[in-house]
Design a protein around this nucleic acid. Structure first.
Lengths: 140, 140
DNA sequence: AATATAAATTGTAATGATTACAGAAATGGA
DNA sequence: TCCATTTCTGTAATCATTACAATTTATATT
């Protein structure tokens, strides 16, 4: 039987990232909290259990993961970067009411083709702003 | 015959923004330079001709325009906000080689419908990263 | 196990874009 | 002209993120 942490460890190794304790915990946090947290959110959550962890280590770790393509990052709010353990190209929905960022499993024909108007596409970044399904219900 | 500045002035008035000299010049700059400049770029360009202008005024002016829906802003590079006098929903292409941000006149079926997966859409933000048409040519 | 070497982590200071704020200047009536 | 309001300016503050040097930890070698 494989433990959760062993699974996380193998994910790091697959991307040739030395699996240190901090790296395990940061990736574990991202996999367990798919709400697109900020570096600060991750730091605050981890420092409770790892009192010696530094903010810089969280940033370094996340940047390392990004470089190796283990995670992705999104800018939506305009102030902070948010992180996502999901690296497959997908869209997001930002709810103006509750602030939630929801993953959207939708397709983009241009991305599938690999080109738009003659430009070669490498990355897709798409998000909508509006009122989420849940907040529409609540208003009634 | 209507001068360019009179046209800019009427655009401000249509959005109920008092047309001051700085506001005229900022909007004029955005209309003449459709390359999605940053606040700093606009400031540096304008300060050459209006030596008394302050950076804060440029920021205030741009934020005022944004609130009134006269311009739009995009966040692509991760460091600075870029401004666009084009407020109709459209996509962008960011070239990793030359750093250019190109407007894309393409359609999004979800945006047209007004909803994605039950969430009400108010704004569309879409951009691709890759190598632009021009830079592909140059490489040969 | 001890040592040497490299890698990872930490804490503080710096950076850079943006905003807050208070005072100065300009504007538009009465 | 005087007053009130709006606009503009300049400096200081803020906040996320990065730079960097010092410390700690891990790894390999003897």
């Amino acid at each position: 039987m494989i433990t959760e942490m062993e699974l996380i460890k193998s994910k790091l190794q697959k991307k040739e990232i030395t699996p240190t304790y901090i790296r395990l915990r940061v990736l574990d946090y991202l996999e367990a909290n798919k709400v697109h947290p900020t570096a600060e959110t991750i730091y605050k959550a981890l420092v409770k259990e790892i009192p010696t962890i530094s903010r810089t280590s969280v940033y370094n770790t996340l940047n390392g993961f990004l470089e190796k393509g283990l995670i992705s990052s999104i800018f939506i709010t305009g102030t902070e970067t948010r992180f996502d353990s999901n690296t497959s190209p997908h869209h997001h929905f930002f709810c103006e009411k509750c602030g939630q960022i929801i993953d959207l499993d939708i397709e983009c024909s241009y991305f599938k083709k690999g080109y738009v108007k003659g430009h070669k596409i490498k990355e897709l970044h798409g998000y909508f702003k509006g009122i989420c399904k849940n907040c529409i219900k609540k208003r009634r």
